[in-house]
């Protein structure tokens, strides 16, 4: 099982200038903020289910940047239709990483559908996203980096990780206007 915070930190350790990272509500935003106070990041703290379409809009409007969305299984399950939208309006610069801990950790670790019979990689594939895979071990880190920076997207990587609550690392500001202005200025 992958420890998500270590994984996210490793992935963004030597990040390139052309990368913009968005995170979904829940633990993903605290994970992203734990990598440092970075203008090239934007973390959702609400609007559950909106991170996927937001990342698509950003990818369409910034075709020369690499766009990475890091989000949870719960957030992804709330916007499954967006997987179909992304597949049918393909953006080659978008990678979605689902940190699949099979639970809603943020709200008390209740099991999600992926703890049962549901497989998000198969849903993404069935939605028409061609480049999809699941990783279970940290030995596959290099593969994910290659997907983000080199492969043609849209891509979706399911990262099976441990369901544990981790320290909350808050963003530079909880104020949405401050956060989005800072992020937009990097484009």
């Amino acid at each position: 099982m992958i420890i998500r915070r270590d994984f996210v930190n490793k992935l963004l350790e030597d990040r390139k200038d052309n990368l913009r990272v968005v995170s979904g509500i829940g633990t993903s935003t605290w994970d992203l903020m734990s990598t440092g106070d970075e203008k090239n990041n934007f973390g959702f703290i609400g609007a559950m289910g909106q991170a996927l379409p937001f990342a698509l809009g950003l990818s369409i409007s910034q075709p020369d940047k690499k766009i990475l969305l890091i989000t949870g299984d719960g957030d992804t399950l709330m916007s499954l239709g967006s997987l179909a939208t992304i597949a049918n309006h393909p953006v080659s610069n978008l990678t979605v990483i689902v940190l699949d801990n099979e639970s809603y950790v943020e709200t008390g670790s209740q099991p999600t559908a992926t703890a049962g019979k549901t497989n998000l990689e198969l849903i993404a594939k069935g939605s028409g996203i061609e480049n999809t895979y699941t990783i279970f071990e940290r030995t596959d880190d290099y593969k994910v980096l290659k997907t983000i920076y080199e492969e043609d997207g849209p891509s979706l990587v399911v990262v099976k990780c441990k369901a544990e609550s981790t320290p909350l690392i808050f963003p530079h500001s909880f104020d949405g206007v401050t956060a989005i202005n800072r992020f937009k200025d990097t484009m």
């Binding site: 909106q50 379409p53 937001f54 809009g57 950003l58 990818s59 369409i60 409007s61 967006s82 939208t85």
Partner: peptide, 20 residues
């Protein structure tokens, strides 16, 4: 972009604006 539900259009618009 043809959506699967209208709410996607809200997030899509917002992401697009962030990108200009």
């Amino acid at each position: 972009v043809t959506l699967t539900t209208e709410e996607e259009g809200v997030g899509l618009s917002c992401g697009a604006w962030a990108g200009g």
